[in-house]
Design a protein around this nucleic acid. Structure first.
Lengths: 106, 106
DNA sequence: TGAGATATGTCCTAAAAGGGACATATTGTA
DNA sequence: TACAATATGTCCCTTTTAGGACATATCTCA
């Protein structure tokens, strides 16, 4: 039984709770889509299509979990996202549930 | 911001990581499908179709996370599932990942 | 005896999700 | 100058998932 459950479970959590993982990333520091894509791919070992990411970021902003500001980097425009109070509350609630999950070993 | 994130996130985790929650339930004590359905519905507030549950239990057995024994209760047959070492290892790995998730608040 | 609960199983269709392409623009490097 | 990387966005078709029905059998209680 030398199976790599670790990698499998991390990928499952990343895929199914992707919005939360993104909120957590942006919570550490404001970030733009392209950087988030790279971070998710290196940190969690999951391919993240930009065709899935950008609409997700927009929806998270619409729901009030993120705000965005356009930043100019030379002629290049970055849409930098910052987490809101609501977004922080969501992460906090998530962490509390995880704590319960761990304690409920019985 | 009086929204009930708690309920929403618990339901998301239950739906997306249903197999793990079921393994955790069976880990506390051997259980059969119908009881699992009731437990999941009352504990997590999620409707669980038996048409989804029974095939899932069979696949978890095929993968070696569970074993089953048929038990007679009068003329009624219960397929009682017990968790295997592999199943316990999976839960353990899951809990370790959750611990990392909580610590990585940065 | 009939209805509701217990108990397990399959199957089909509709809805959702995912993959990959189409689209555009700039910067850096070979 | 051409290609890879940075940067953001939409769209369509395929694949996967989910809901609900079909199926069967026993037990309990009114």
């Amino acid at each position: 039984m030398t199976e790599n459950f670790q990698k499998e479970i991390v990928q499952r959590i990343t895929k199914n709770l992707l919005d939360i993982q993104i909120l957590k990333l942006i919570n550490t520091e404001p970030m733009w889509g392209y950087k988030i894509k790279k971070e998710v791919e290196t940190k969690f070992g999951v391919k993240l299509r930009h065709g899935a990411l950008y609409p997700l970021l927009n929806s998270l902003e619409q729901k009030g979990f993120l705000t965005s500001q356009k930043q100019q980097q030379g002629g290049r425009t970055r849409k930098v996202y910052t987490i809101t109070k609501k977004g922080k509350k969501y992460i906090e609630t998530y962490h509390n549930i995880l704590k319960e999950q761990i304690q409920n070993k019985t």
